[in-house]
């Protein structure tokens, strides 16, 4: 892992431990390349009282390249979240920017959950899950819905 990502991840880790955003808790960070973050469904949303875990895997050239972010253990039922944990969210792929942080990514995902009005799997879930690569970053995502 290069110095570029080490320094930055160390700072992000400290920040996340010191003042995590509401509903976000660092669950484990055994090393600087894979972290698990616990997110809690916001109050008065369809995910209230539900707890989910996001696994962040950082490439060696993070933050030039986006982290791989997937849900693990408990996968929320959401039109943009596949049952294998893959998340269809543009900032994780084409619209990634080094200005984004682990905190801001968690908040974006929480906001995606919060704005959901109908708990259901994506229409193409079974087809996608059957053919998807291990990492969602290898998927050619088409972002057709900017509202959620």
């Amino acid at each position: 892992m290069s110095n570029l990502s080490t320094k930055r991840l160390t700072k992000e880790l400290a920040e996340l431990q010191k003042k995590p955003p509401g509903g976000v808790t660092l669950e484990s960070a055994d090393n600087l390349s894979q972290w698990v973050v616990k997110v809690e469904g916001a109050k008065d949303t369809l995910y209230q009282n539900e707890v989910f875990w996001l696994r962040f895997t950082f490439p060696s050239n993070y933050p030039l390249e986006s982290p791989e972010v997937v849900f693990v253990r408990n996968i929320p039922i959401h039109p943009h979240i596949y049952s294998n944990g893959h998340i269809c969210l543009s900032i994780l792929y084409d619209h990634w920017s080094p200005a984004l942080t682990i905190s801001s990514v968690c908040l974006s995902i929480l906001s995606m959950l919060s704005s959901c009005t109908n708990k259901e799997r994506p229409p193409d879930d079974s087809r996608y899950v059957a053919h998807a690569a291990k990492s969602p970053k290898q998927t050619n995502w088409a972002f057709h819905d900017d509202t959620v």
Partner: peptide
């Protein structure tokens, strides 16, 4: 630096 969060550029770069 807004990208690597450090002041001085890391050595290996």
């Amino acid at each position: 630096c807004g990208i690597c969060y450090s002041r001085q550029l890391p050595i290996d770069l």
